[in-house]
């Protein structure tokens, strides 16, 4: 058996991080995307820029600042310590927080595009049919933005699976805690275990390709309809 138990642990941990992160991303990203599309606020550009920051920032930079913020003397660290949660770096929750921040634009942007594409009219129609704002959001905006939700879910999940820099900075390399697939591949290569690295790397390659193929295939399908 070339794939070791450690590899399997890394795989399960990766899926767990990505799954939880994706859930949180959708939960937080949806209202943010909705607000960005609907708001007339002058803060919109600023928020947009902040949301998009992880797209251009080196992951190590983001990881470094997260590490500083979450340290016992950092702003976030002091809050979590005061709440009795301890500090986040090198823990599973810390890894999830970092993943959510890092993948945020990959979820918000497809949602934003999808919400903007709906336009004003369906919501006006819903209002004249007695639906309040919350009702029309769930009964009209969300179903009409379905392609955006699918893209956001897939991209958010895949991007979280694939991250490395932030994970290494914030999570470190603790087996079963923070050692995810990308870190495990790095470990294999460091130890010159190329065969095992191949299995994992190849697996991720196939996974990423399959994800994108599904995504584009689905989008083409909706356009045709």
């Amino acid at each position: 058996m070339i794939v070791s138990e450690a590899d399997l642990d890394a795989l399960l941990l990766t899926l767990k991080v990505a799954g939880i992160s994706t859930g949180l991303l959708l939960l937080i990203g949806t209202p943010v995307a909705w607000w960005l599309v609907r708001t007339p606020s002058r803060w919109k550009s600023l928020v947009n820029a902040v949301v998009a920051l992880p797209l251009v920032l080196p992951p190590t930079v983001l990881g470094f600042y997260l590490l500083v913020a979450m340290s016992p003397t950092g702003m976030v660290g002091r809050v979590t310590t005061a709440l009795g949660l301890g500090t986040l770096p090198f823990t599973f929750p810390g890894l999830v927080v970092a993943s959510v921040l890092y993948s945020f634009p990959f979820v918000v942007q497809p949602l934003q595009t999808a919400f903007a594409a709906i336009g004003e009219r369906p919501l006006e129609v819903a209002a004249t049919l007695r639906a309040n704002a919350l009702d029309s959001f769930f009964s009209v905006a969300v179903p009409l933005a379905r392609p955006g939700f699918i893209a956001a879910t897939v991209l958010g999940f895949a991007h979280t699976v694939g991250e490395f820099g932030v994970v290494l900075m914030v999570g470190g390399n603790i087996p079963g805690q923070t050692r995810v697939l990308s870190v495990q591949i790095y470990n294999h290569v460091e130890a010159l275990e190329y065969a095992q690295a191949h299995w994992l790397a190849g697996g991720l390659l196939v996974f990423s390709f399959a994800v994108l193929l599904c995504l584009y295939g689905f989008n083409a399908g909706t356009v045709k309809k």
């Binding site: 006006e124 129609v125 309040n132 009702d135 029309s136």
Partner: peptide, 10 residues
């Protein structure tokens, strides 16, 4: 709007 009993045809 949603509390006004109107029927609106666009």
């Amino acid at each position: 709007v949603h509390r006004r009993a109107v029927g609106y045809v666009f």
